[in-house]
Design a protein around this nucleic acid. Structure first.
Lengths: 204, 204
DNA sequence: GTCTATACGTCGATAGAC
DNA sequence: GTCTATCGACGTATAGAC
């Protein structure tokens, strides 16, 4: 690679980085963060192990980036369900949001377990805090709207929002852990209904 | 000290270890896990830095142990409120449990933040999973009893229990983080009431 | 990107128990 | 006298500052 960035090298660099990230996410989706070995990622992305560090400061940074790109996608799905279609009642949107989140988590168990619960490097843990806040902000808006429409009882929206985020992750940790460990399926329907009822009762 | 463990040396060893742990917990209560330096703990416990490794395999192990002893205490408080006094209604016990948990968390902010939310070594994270399960088991019992008494609506107890654990930790993370960062107080009353209402609505 | 400061964990020496 | 717990300085890795 040349010593002055040109348009071409910049594009190449970005493509390589994206490729690397994609391989890393896939690896985490298969084996969790504990399976994310730099050499393995490099091999999949078809570059030398050492070159990984040309694109990411450290393994920590790579992990954090993997977490970010994977989580942003989930946050966006949740945002859509929660806030986009204003023709639906807030109650309905809350139920839909929970369903989408849980459904996706159960579908992509290993990745979701990695994102939500797997013990990981503090750097990733810090990102978790940030993105749980992002989820909470979405629910805060939904709850405020629900209160304005008098669908939900008066309540401190941000506290309830945080509580819902906690409810979602914690109620899925157990099932996800079991499913990942034993590679078995989850009683999806009952689980989702239980979480929906819990949250609905909590805010109304 | 003798070269074959006797009663006396055993006692000495245990006392040393306890002293070390106590110093470590105090340190974490003041500065969080990020402030837990081996040399500092050693100094407080009045032993040499190197000797710490005679009692704990590694810093990780020390951290994990600190987490355990501090958390077991909290779990026990929660267990008492939730399950001990059978003359109280389950509803009342649920409210009391939430109050105790939140009150103690807000009181000992720094320690609670460290135990609940601070980004830490994966070894400690693993312990978090274990003890959140311990909390969940307590709430599972309480909810089952509440359903039997027809105070709570029919629901999968273990899922609701996990949800309550998630609610408690997540709704306190924000306030604790703010309080720790700015060293300010928390609007205790409103916060606790909000969490209580949320959980009560969720299970009834 | 380099440089410094800091902290983990090890090791040889020492002192003191049996 | 033998053996071991403790000491504390040092090597090495790392993280944070400029």
């Amino acid at each position: 690679m040349p010593y002055r960035p040109t348009e071409k090298t910049r594009a190449h660099r970005e493509a390589q980085q994206k490729n690397l990230l994609k391989s890393a996410v896939k690896l985490v989706a298969e084996e969790g963060f504990k399976g994310l070995k730099v050499s393995k990622v490099a091999k999949r992305a078809d570059i030398a192990t050492g070159s990984v560090y040309k694109y990411f400061e450290s393994k920590q940074a790579l992990c954090a980036e993997v977490f970010k790109v994977a989580t942003i996608k989930e946050v966006e799905k949740v945002r859509q369900q929660a806030l986009e279609d204003k023709t639906l009642s807030c109650t309905q949107r809350l139920l839909n949001t929970i369903e989408i989140f849980a459904q996706r988590a159960i579908q992509g168990r290993r990745l979701s377990y990695a994102l939500i619960a797997e013990p990981v490097d503090p750097a990733v843990e810090t990102e978790r805090l940030i993105y749980r806040k992002a989820y909470a902000d979405i629910f805060t808006q939904l709850i405020e709207e629900g209160m304005a429409r008098e669908e939900f009882r008066p309540q401190p929206a941000s506290i309830s929002a945080a509580a819902i985020v906690g409810t979602l992750s914690e109620s899925l940790v157990g099932p996800l852990t079991t499913a990942v460990e034993s590679n078995r399926d989850i009683e999806t329907g009952d689980l989702i209904a239980a979480i929906q009822n819990f949250c609905l009762g909590a805010v109304t």
